[in-house]
Write a protein that binds this DNA or RNA. Structure first.
Length: 424
RNA sequence: GGAGAAGUGCCAGAGUGGUUGAAUGGGACUGACUCGAAAUCAGUUUUACGCCUAAUCCGUGUAACGGGGGUUCGAAUCCCUCCUUCUCCGCCA
C-alpha cells in the first residue's frame, strides 16, 4: 500500500498517476487524507486522556502503599469518569482507523513516470524484439497435437484425476519439465540468487503482504479448513520471507529464486485462449525476487529484464519485451515489463514472464525495512520476475522447434535433458 | 490425534499485579587508551503512531513482553481463546 506521508505530500501527483492506471475512485485519495486528519485529532484526545488515567493510576498505587484508602478511592472515581470520557473517543478512533486502513489498501500502487497511458494490452509498448520466427515445415502442428504425438502431456488424464487445466506430464514430457526447472534454477543461482523451496500454501498475512489479498481473492485456491491459500506464484512465500524484518543496509540487495508449482483459478477464462498449455490451473514456474535499496530499484529492474532476456535467448525462441500500459498493469505494480514468446503454430504471442518493480507498495504492507547510513529506518523496494513460467515455454519449444520427425532441443537444454531432441 | 510444558528486546535470560520499555550477561555501535589491533574503561543500542518543531535533530505523549479478547484504578505478570515451539504417547512418507 502507498505510504501515508507520500500521499500527504503528493496528493495531486498520486491522483494524476492513478488516473493513468484508470483507477476510477480518485476521490479516495482525498478521503484518505481526511480520515487521517480525523485520526490524528482523535488520537491526540485519546492519548491525552489516557495519559491522565495512567498518572492517576500510578498515584492510586502510591496512596495505597501509604495506606491512604480514602484518597485512593477518590482517585478511582476520578479515573472512572476519565474512562467514561475516553470510551466514545476510543470507539470513534478505532472506527476511523478502520476506514483509513480500508481506503489505503484499496488504493493501487502509483505507476512510475515512464508508464504509458492506455487501457488494454493493445496499448502496451513494444520495447524490443529478439530471436527470429521459424519457418515451420509443411503440416506443422500446435503444441497440444505435438504433445499427444510424442506422448509428452496427457490432458485427458488430468481431467479425470482433477479437472480441466491440470495437465499430466508423461515420460519425456515430465523429463523436459524437470530439465527446464533445473536449468532455470542453475542459471539464477549462477547470477547470485539464493535458492529457496518455500511452502506452496500461505496464510492470509502472506497473501496480503504481496498484494494478492484483498484484490485477487477469487484467483486463488483456498483451503478453507485451515485458512490457507495455494500460492499463485512463488513471489508470495518468497517475498514474505523477510516480512517484519529490519535489515542492515549492507544486506541489500537480497536476491532469491525458487521453483514452485503455481495454482490459479483463472475464473472466467474459456475458449481457444485456454487450449492446451496456453492457460492452466496448475503450472510450474521458477521465480526471482529481489529486495533492494530504493535508490537502486530501477537499475535492478533493468538488470532483471536483461537477465531474463538472456535466458530466453539461450532457448532460441522469438520473443518481445513489452512495457505495460497503465490499464494493463497489476494493482501492486509501479512498472512492469512483460516477456512474450511467439508460438509459431498458433501464430500468437504468449506471456512467459512479467518483471515488476513494486517500489514500497509490498514492503509497506510487509514492513520490510532497512537501516540506512544515517541510522534511519526506511522501506526497501521489492521486485520480482518469472524466470520462467514453464507451460508456454514448452508450448513454444514444441511448436517452434518441430521438424516433422522430432522436436530439436536448444543446445543449452540438451545436457539437462540428456538428449538432443525428442522423437517418437 | 491425546497428555503436559513453554512463548519476554539482535541473542541468551530475569521478572508472577503498581516508578519494568523491561534486571543481568553476550553481541553490535560510539568514544578513550594504542603506531594499529586485542584487552580494558566509559557510553549508546526496539518499533509504531501522535504532539511540539524549519527538521526524518531535541523534547514530550500513547501503544507494544507470540496474536486477539477479558478482569482491574493499574497486567509482561491473573482469566479466555487462537497460533507456534518443546517433551511423552499414538499415527505416518
Amino acid at each position: 500500500m502507498l505510504q501515508l506521508g507520500f500521499i500527504r505530500q503528493h496528493a495531486e501527483l498520486v491522483k494524476e498517476r492513478l488516473a493513468i492506471k484508470n483507477f476510477p475512485s480518485l476521490d479516495l485519495v482525498d478521503k484518505v487524507l481526511q480520515f487521517d486528519d480525523q485520526r490524528k485529532k482523535l488520537q491526540l484526545e485519546s492519548d491525552t486522556i489516557q495519559s491522565k488515567i495512567n498518572s492517576a493510576s500510578k498515584e492510586i498505587g502510591q496512596l495505597m502503599a501509604k495506606g491512604e484508602k480514602q484518597e485512593a478511592e477518590n482517585k478511582k472515581q476520578e479515573v472512572a469518569s476519565l474512562k467514561s470520557a475516553l470510551q466514545p473517543i476510543a470507539e470513534q478512533l478505532s472506527k476511523i482507523e478502520n476506514k483509513l486502513n480500508e481506503a489505503l489498501i484499496t488504493l493501487p500502487n502509483v505507476p512510475s513516470a515512464v508508464v504509458p497511458a492506455g487501457k488494454t494490452p493493445a496499448d502496451n509498448l513494444i520495447v524490443r524484439e529478439g530471436g527470429k520466427k521459424p519457418a515451420l515445415p509443411e503440416g506443422a502442428s500446435p503444441h497440444w497435437e505435438l504433445a499427444k504425438k510424442f506422448n509428452l502431456i496427457d490432458f485427458e488424464l488430468g481431467n479425470k484425476i482433477t479437472g480441466s487445466g491440470f495437465p499430466v506430464y508423461v515420460s519425456k514430457g515430465a523429463k523436459l519439465q524437470r530439465a527446464l526447472i533445473q536449468y532455470f534454477l542453475e542459471y539464477n543461482i549462477d547470477a547470485g540468487y539464493v535458492e529457496y523451496q518455500p511452502p506452496y500454501m500461505v496464510n492470509e498475512a502472506s497473501a496480503f503482504g504481496t498484494g494478492q489479498l484483498p484484490d485477487k481473492e477469487g484467483q486463488m485456491y483456498f483451503a478453507s479448513l485451515d485458512n490457507f491459500y495455494l500460492i499463485p506464484t512463488a513471489e508470495v512465500p518468497v517475498t514474505n520471507i523477510y516480512r517484519d524484518a529490519i535489515l542492515k543496509e549492507s544486506e541489500l540487495p537480497l536476491r532469491m529464486t525458487a521453483y514452485t508449482p503455481c495454482f490459479r483459478r483463472e475464473a472466467g477464462s474459456y475458449g481457444k485462449d485456454v487450449r492446451g498449455l496456453n492457460r492452466v490451473h496448475q503450472f510450474d514456474k521458477v521465480e526471482i525476487v529481489q529486495l533492494v535499496h530504493p535508490d537502486k530499484s530501477y537499475d535492478v529492474l533493468e538488470e532483471m529484464v536483461n537477465h531474463i532476456e538472456k535466458l530466453l535467448g539461450t532457448l532460441q525462441l522469438p520473443y518481445r519485451i513489452l512495457k505495460l500500459c497503465g490499464g494493463d498493469m497489476s494493482f501492486a505494480s509501479a512498472l512492469t515489463y512483460d516477456f512474450e514468446v511467439f508460438s509459431a503454430a498458433q501464430q500468437k504471442w504468449l506471456e512467459v514472464s512479467s518483471v515488476t518493480n513494486f517500489e514500497t507498495f509490498q514492503t509497506n504492507r510487509m514492513k520490510i525495512r532497512f537501516k540506512d547510513g544515517g541510522g534511519k529506518t526506511q522501506l526497501a523496494h521489492s521486485l520480482n520476475g518469472s524466470s520462467l513460467a514453464l507451460p508456454r515455454i514448452v508450448a513454444c519449444l514444441l511448436e517452434n522447434h518441430q521438424d516433422g520427425q522430432s522436436i530439436r532441443l536448444p543446445e543449452i537444454l540438451q545436457k539437462y535433458f540428456g538428449a538432443t531432441s525428442i522423437g517418437v
